[in-house]
Design a protein around this nucleic acid. Sequence first.
DNA 1: TATGAATGAGCCTTCATTCAT
DNA 2: AATGAATGAAGGCTCATTCAT
Lengths: 211, 211, 211, 211
Amino acid sequence: MSTTPAFKRLPRAVREQQMLDAAVRVFSRRGFHAASMDEIADDAGISKPMVYAYLGAKEEVFIACLHREGTRLMEAIAAVVDPDLPPDEQLWRGLRAFFGFVGAHRDGWAVLYRQARGEQPFAGQLAQMRTRMVEVVAGMLGRATAAEGREVPATELDVMAYALVGATESLADWLADHPEADPERTATRMMNVAWLGAAELLRGNTWHPSG
Amino acid sequence: MSTTPAFKRLPRAVREQQMLDAAVRVFSRRGFHAASMDEIADDAGISKPMVYAYLGAKEEVFIACLHREGTRLMEAIAAVVDPDLPPDEQLWRGLRAFFGFVGAHRDGWAVLYRQARGEQPFAGQLAQMRTRMVEVVAGMLGRATAAEGREVPATELDVMAYALVGATESLADWLADHPEADPERTATRMMNVAWLGAAELLRGNTWHPSG
Amino acid sequence: MSTTPAFKRLPRAVREQQMLDAAVRVFSRRGFHAASMDEIADDAGISKPMVYAYLGAKEEVFIACLHREGTRLMEAIAAVVDPDLPPDEQLWRGLRAFFGFVGAHRDGWAVLYRQARGEQPFAGQLAQMRTRMVEVVAGMLGRATAAEGREVPATELDVMAYALVGATESLADWLADHPEADPERTATRMMNVAWLGAAELLRGNTWHPSG
Amino acid sequence: MSTTPAFKRLPRAVREQQMLDAAVRVFSRRGFHAASMDEIADDAGISKPMVYAYLGAKEEVFIACLHREGTRLMEAIAAVVDPDLPPDEQLWRGLRAFFGFVGAHRDGWAVLYRQARGEQPFAGQLAQMRTRMVEVVAGMLGRATAAEGREVPATELDVMAYALVGATESLADWLADHPEADPERTATRMMNVAWLGAAELLRGNTWHPSG
DNA sequence: TATGAATGAGCCTTCATTCAT
DNA sequence: AATGAATGAAGGCTCATTCAT
């Protein structure tokens, strides 16, 4: 009556996090379809009905994973970006945070994100997350142009942001596939491509952090 | 009576193409997992065993789709890119061909490609196709720097190409999701981002085809 | 209301035996290939996934049947054979137990065994079971010769045992195919062939239980 | 018009034998169920419809194989057994011919026979073949007892013959599984078991060919 | 709260078999 | 005579999901 078998009857919030941890691991390891609810439950050390009770159906579990990891990523970025800084500094800090996060969670967000792209059930969720990122980037670009006294149509900014986000995702994939690669260097490369463009780079110019 | 000949007992080569057409449609419509061999066979107007006889198992069918569509895309690009042109002209032509193709085959390439990214069994195929593209882009960038008398490490060129390909794929996705969007304009936007970079764009400068 | 309790949600051990019972019936009725997992599940009164959950794939189910029935047979024999008895008595008791078992389980062991002989996937299992029987018989023969002060190479004993086991199996088949036949008489016949040989039998001599 | 492409338009009888050769090979290699009509046709170097035209459905093909190989075996035995010889000599010659044949056609009769035992569709065919063998053996035993002025009920002779045939089949299996074993020695062992019985053998007596 | 037991539904895959040429 | 093309039918297996305890 006092040996307290470890990890029993934990509060709901804790259990949910444990399940999500397990789900992220399994989805990353197997992919959405190959992952089974059985394996997730096993990995979490509880029974399947508990997963359903706490997180719902499989798609919902995946969305919850995506949401949690995406939020963490956004928070990591938001923590370092200051709207008052010059745009290149903002971009640089954002990219560094982004690649740092992806590099530190190689089994997390980037892999889930990659899964989600292919599956229609997640199109909505995905679009929403991407929109959040695009908005951040587009907002930054918008403020930068406004500061120069110019104005660019929102659509143009969006498309541009879209391309930047795409390039970044692509390098995140690359980073996830190259365990030996350095997140910081990857961020620098991305920054060069994004900020200077191919023309400048080919001319031999590169971008450097001002600090 | 004369234009549309008999429907049955066609030679293998013809049936194979019909099957691939159907498979591309169904995979695009449903996604790889939700697609069923039954639906593919139905859509092709033949019975399931024929699909297995000619194209093999489901994964092989998908790979065959990927291969055919990927080859068509590469050919469309190769047909317009001339290594003797200036690099920006090469890039521009390539992008225009790329987005033109994706716009014209909205149900084909973009969706297949998007599917393939998430599924581990296709990682190899995908990597191979992407490598082909990256090599093309990196090769072009390499010739351009060489023409300027400079030299850039191959790795740097690869990563840069990777980012460009990623941005392009991202916009291709965007294009596939926006039926009203114009491929040509999308190509222009991508060209601006890629060639000039954010800094120039924010300064109000844009790139224009020389012709 | 009391003898036959609820029919659903039985503990695993019980359900497993029910499934094995059904599987033995179905395999005997149809043969390994013609038997379907559906029919086994139906016959057991549960759904197919339960069969997979508890017993595994079709081959595994068959092996489990073989194992259970084979073990029961060996136990039936072991229960009546006493190594201290004279060899003919041992052989006689063993044969009687054997044919008694086969006669009482006409849908069981003999049929499974017959199935197993033809199918390559079961060669291993089969060989193992036959080895157990051959060892028992060869061991008995070995002790008998040793008791007479003689010694016979192990290989010779094995081949002899092999022939005896083969003859016995053959008569077991015959018994399984002749529902009207008497197991006890069959055992006697086998005993005569095995112990006396054709020469003695043709001379009109027969073997009789000493008791 | 004169290069006569090898092996075309052969007379039916020849083609049939080629098909049966192929069928025996494939059935032996794969077993009845795992063998496919495709593989048989391929192995015979002709198209599948020809197999159906000449030999009929799969079961019929197997039966034809069984029949041809069984007949060859019976002929090999009949060629050396002379009803006027003493019974042990007859048995010995028969066994020697039997094991010689099985040893020389390790992929032929014994394997087919083993397949056939498990499958119900062949029960009739099988019974018929076994009956032919049992009749031969029982007939021999009958003549032998008659020569001694004794009479044994037909059923008894049949069962005895059944046991002998079973033992022989069992050793044929053993021989088919032991490529290094010598058919002649196997025949001798079988002869000892069958003719002398265990009692004599354990006493150290053995049977030897009279010649 | 927590779980072992149970299932409906569906998909991939494979053949034996037959037409139409 | 000979074959490439085509299919009906069926079976193994898996999994997300839910009761009943």
